[in-house]
């Protein structure tokens, strides 16, 4: 997919370059002005996208009086980390980050393990009823989470799971499965069936074929799906807000939502530092893996 995209891109590009050079140079000045609106659009676009981040980062170093008495574009007078210290001590963000990690990564593990196996069973294996079962999973993508929250709350309450992170892990796993199964089935569809048939002819059982032939073939796909699910779960607010019944169970999103309310009046510096802390993880991930993230998230766009 991306390979064909790139080559097309290159073609478009070479077409542009191969136009005669001489007249182009003579029109240099006119060209510059003709391209001015485009440059202006790009400049505005970049400011809109990047400035809020810069403003956030600068704000996280400012003191309360700098916020109240100086214009928004003033630089912080010192680069002190007091606001960040405040976020981790009074704000208890260390605990929230640990909670998020403890809820998201086990869920991610289960989603990938169960989802990839189910995708294989639904796409490669041949049996009656696999079409309807795939549809059953697909239906889960569309149903809003609000539909399952109340019964789940009752179930977790009755089984005594309330008060731990298990409600989050279980709910995340179930909610992540439909998209994972769907995407993995799509990826397995691109693998020629002959490969699996050859594996069984060589005497491997189907389980063995899944483990040592199927899995390595879709390794990149698993990584992509995992990345997509990570963003969905890490940024989730609805489930976390519903099942974190005590403040010691808050994930980073719920903690951030409650952060400003903690002092009455808005503490600007600490708020900005808290935003910066919560943005840091996903932003770093995007910095290094942006191409995979873009590919994965758009492939998972059925989720809306």
């Amino acid at each position: 997919m991306s390979a064909t995209t790139d080559s097309r891109h290159l073609e478009l590009h070479t077409v542009a370059i191969s136009s005669p050079r001489e007249p182009r140079r003579r029109r240099g000045a006119r060209d510059f002005f003709a391209r001015l609106p485009l440059r202006a659009i790009i400049a505005v676009l970049l400011v809109i996208e990047i400035y809020p981040m810069v403003w956030m980062l600068l704000g996280s170093f400012k003191t309360q009086s700098e916020f109240l008495n100086e214009p928004f574009w003033a630089l912080p007078s010192s680069w002190s980390f007091d606001n960040y210290v405040e976020v981790f001590t009074t704000g208890n963000f260390g605990q929230y980050i640990v909670n998020s990690v403890l809820a998201v990564f086990p869920s991610l593990f289960f989603i990938l393990l169960f989802g990839v196996a189910a995708g294989f069973a639904l796409e490669v294996l041949v049996w009656k009823g696999r079409g309807p079962v795939l549809l059953l999973f697909l239906a889960g993508i569309m149903v809003p989470a609000q539909m399952i929250l109340l019964p789940l709350f009752t179930i977790y309450f009755r089984t005594g799971l309330t008060g731990s992170l298990w409600p989050l892990i279980l709910t995340y796993t179930a909610i992540g499965l439909p998209l994972t199964v769907f995407m993995m089935a799509t990826f397995f569809r691109t693998v020629p069936r002959e490969i699996f048939e050859a594996a069984t002819l060589d005497g491997a059982s189907m389980l063995r074929a899944f483990w040592s032939v199927g899995l390595p073939l879709v390794r990149n796909a698993i990584f992509t799906v995992g990345l997509v699910q990570f963003f969905f779960l890490w940024n989730d607010l609805l489930i976390a807000l519903t099942f974190t019944t005590s403040s010691s169970l808050r994930t980073i999103q719920v903690g951030l939502l409650n952060f400003t309310g903690q002092y009455g009046a808005v503490q600007y510096g600490p708020t900005f530092a808290a935003i910066a802390v919560s943005v840091f993880g996903t932003l770093m991930l995007y910095l290094f893996l942006n191409q995979q993230v873009m590919k994965g998230l758009t492939a998972g766009s059925v989720k809306g």
């Binding site: 196996a117 069973a121 079962v133 699996f196 899944f210």
Partner: peptide, 19 residues
């Protein structure tokens, strides 16, 4: 081999159960 019931159950079972 491609339609082995036990394999289907092992691979699809956990996902279907949780879901």
């Amino acid at each position: 081999a491609l339609g082995d019931k036990r394999t289907i159950l092992i691979l699809l079972g956990p996902a279907l159960l949780v879901y």
